[in-house]
C-alpha cells in the first residue's frame, strides 16, 4: 500500500548520523561523469570516435603531461595569465573609477553614465577588427579587449551599489556629523562593496571569455595560440588540454573572489547563517 510506504521514512530513527550518508551521496555524484569518461575512452579505442574529431581521455592526459614537461603549457599559461591580469587591472580600475565619479555626484553621473550605457550596448567582440587597425596584432589589442570587457560589469555593479546604499544610514551619518569624506569611506564604499564583488565575479568571467576570443583571432603566443596551432595539425588532444586549462584558470580566479567575499563580507555571515 502506497500510504504505508510513504509513512515508512518517518519511522526511521532520526538520530542516524548524517556525515557518512552525505559522503556516500557526494561519491554518487562522481558516478555519471566517470561513466561518461569510460564510454568516451571506449568509443575512442574502438574507433567509433575518430581522433581527428576528439582525442581519447587517456591521450589527452598524456599530452597534458608532455606539454607540461616540454614547457609549452606553462609558458602559454604564463602569457595568457599576464594578459588577463593586466587587462583586468586596467579595466577594473577604469570601471571602478568611473563608477565612483558617476555614483558620488549628479554631475559625474550626467557626464559618465550616458556614455557608459551607450558603449555597453556595443558588442565588444565586434570591436576586434577596429582594435587590430588601431593597435596592430601585438599585446595591446588583447589586453585592451579584456580591459574593456571587465570595465562594464564593474562599472554597472559598483554604480548601482553606490546608489543602493541605505538612505537611512546616510541620515545616521548626518546626525553623527560625518564629513563627506567620512560618509564615503565609512558608509558609501563599504555599502557598495557586496554589489562590487558581484561585479568582480562577472568581470572575471568575461575577462577569460574576452581573452579566449582575442587569442583565437591573432596570437603567436599564449593558450589561444596553442589551441589554434593545434587545429592546423588536427591535434584535438592539445585543443582539449587548452580548453581544460582555460576552465581550470576560470574556476581558480572565481575561487579567489569567493574567498575575498568571505573575508570582506564577514559582517553578513551571522545574518545569512
Amino acid at each position: 500500500m502506497s500510504v504505508v510506504e510513504l509513512a515508512r521514512p518517518v519511522e526511521k530513527p532520526r538520530a542516524t548520523p548524517k556525515g557518512p550518508r552525505r559522503r556516500v551521496t557526494a561519491w554518487h555524484r562522481w558516478l555519471s561523469p566517470l561513466a561518461l569518461l569510460v564510454v568516451w575512452q571506449i568509443a575512442s579505442a574502438t574507433g567509433l570516435l575518430p581522433e581527428r574529431l576528439l582525442a581519447a581521455p587517456a591521450a589527452i592526459a598524456s599530452t597534458a603531461v608532455e606539454l607540461t614537461q616540454a614547457g609549452t603549457l606553462p609558458t602559454a599559461i604564463g602569457v595568457s595569465l599576464q594578459r588577463v591580469l593586466i587587462g583586468f587591472l586596467v579595466g577594473g580600475a577604469a570601471g571602478i573609477v568611473l563608477a565612483l565619479a558617476a555614483g558620488l555626484s549628479r554631475a559625474g553621473e550626467n557626464a559618465v553614465d550616458p556614455i557608459m550605457q551607450a558603449l555597453r550596448a556595443l558588442p565588444f567582440f565586434g570591436l576586434i577588427p577596429l582594435f587590430i587597425l588601431w593597435f596592430g596584432i601585438g599585446e595591446e589589442p588583447k589586453i585592451l579587449l579584456v580591459a574593456l570587457a571587465v570595465s562594464f560589469p564593474l562599472y554597472l555593479n559598483t554604480f548601482s551599489g553606490i546608489r543602493g546604499v541605505d538612505g537611512k544610514l546616510a541620515e545616521v551619518a548626518t546626525t553623527l556629523k560625518l564629513s563627506r569624506g567620512q560618509l564615503i569611506r565609512h558608509i558609501v564604499l563599504p555599502g557598495a562593496l557586496p554589489q562590487t564583488l558581484v561585479g568582480l565575479r562577472q568581470a572575471l568571467g568575461v575577462a577569460w571569455l574576452a581573452l579566449i576570443v582575442a587569442e583565437q583571432v591573432n596570437a603567436t603566443t599564449g593558450l589561444g595560440y596553442m589551441i589554434n596551432d593545434a587545429r592546423e595539425f588536427l591535434r584535438t588532444d592539445v585543443i582539449v588540454v587548452g580548453l581544460l586549462v582555460y576552465s581550470a584558470l576560470g574556476l581558480a580566479t572565481d575561487a579567489i573572489v569567493r574567498l575575498l567575499e568571505r573575508r570582506a563580507l564577514a559582517w553578513r555571515r551571522g545574518f545569512l547563517a
Binding site: 537611512k168 544610514l169 541620515e171 545616521v172 551619518a173 546626525t175 553623527l176 556629523k177 560625518l178 567620512q182 565609512h186 558608509i187 563599504p190 555599502g191 562593496l193 559582517w267 553578513r268 545574518f271
Partner: peptide, 23 residues
C-alpha cells in the same frame, strides 16, 4: 544634538565598538 531612531540603524559592516566611535 544626537538621535536614536526607531530602528537602531547601526552600520552593519562595522563592529559594535566601531559603530560607537564613528565620527
Amino acid at each position: 544634538v544626537a538621535v536614536a531612531f526607531q530602528e537602531p540603524r547601526l552600520v552593519p559592516w562595522k563592529r559594535l565598538l566601531a559603530n560607537i566611535t564613528l565620527g
